[in-house]
């Protein structure tokens, strides 16, 4: 890490926070990505409630596209990373964030923002479990690293 990437991380984080604040202030909704996807796929039936969520996801992709076109190269795939491990990881991320009603954005950014104890507990758990998991995968099982 250098000062530049630190500054990038900080300004990226501030933008994420501003986005969440605008969404809550204007529409009353929480900018939790797993919740937005989950409700799109299953819960919401009224078209009015579908459209803003779809547009939010379109915006997510377009925002990143803008960044990759104008400022930096997009990340390339890790050739060494086992496919089955990615599939397992995807299943767990989907199932877990749906069961726990939130992910990094919903619990981490928005939940902590409104000082929710549930979100604080969830964030502390998934952050520490992820740190332990990365340690096991990389240093104990020697998987998913160069």
């Amino acid at each position: 890490m250098n000062n530049f990437s630190m500054l990038q991380a900080l300004s990226g984080g501030v933008l994420i926070g501003i986005s969440a604040a605008l969404l809550l202030w204007l529409t009353g909704h929480v900018a939790g990505i797993s919740g937005i996807i989950g409700r799109l796929l299953f819960a919401v039936k009224k078209s009015d409630e579908v459209i803003w969520r779809v547009l939010f996801l379109v915006g997510l992709v377009a925002g990143a596209k803008l960044y990759y076109l104008g400022f930096a190269e997009a990340p390339t795939g890790r050739e060494y990373f086992p496919v089955w491990l990615l599939v397992v990881s995807g299943l767990l991320v989907g199932f877990g964030s749906s069961l726990g009603k939130g992910c990094t954005s919903g619990h981490g950014v928005c939940g902590l923002g409104r000082l929710s104890v549930r979100s604080l507990v969830a964030t502390l758990i998934f952050l520490s479990v992820a740190i332990i998991t990365t340690f096991l995968i990389r240093h104990v099982f020697g998987l998913g690293a160069h």
Binding site: I33, K65, Y68, L99, S105, A122, F126, I132
Partner: peptide, 28 residues
């Protein structure tokens, strides 16, 4: 909440993706 957070943490720690970035990366 607790079990969900644990499973999500395991998945995130394996691959390095959480839901937001996963959707966002459809850009590239």
């Amino acid at each position: 909440l607790v079990i969900g957070a644990v499973l999500f943490g395991v998945g995130w720690g394996i691959g390095g993706y959480c839901p937001g970035p996963a959707v966002t990366l459809l850009a590239a």
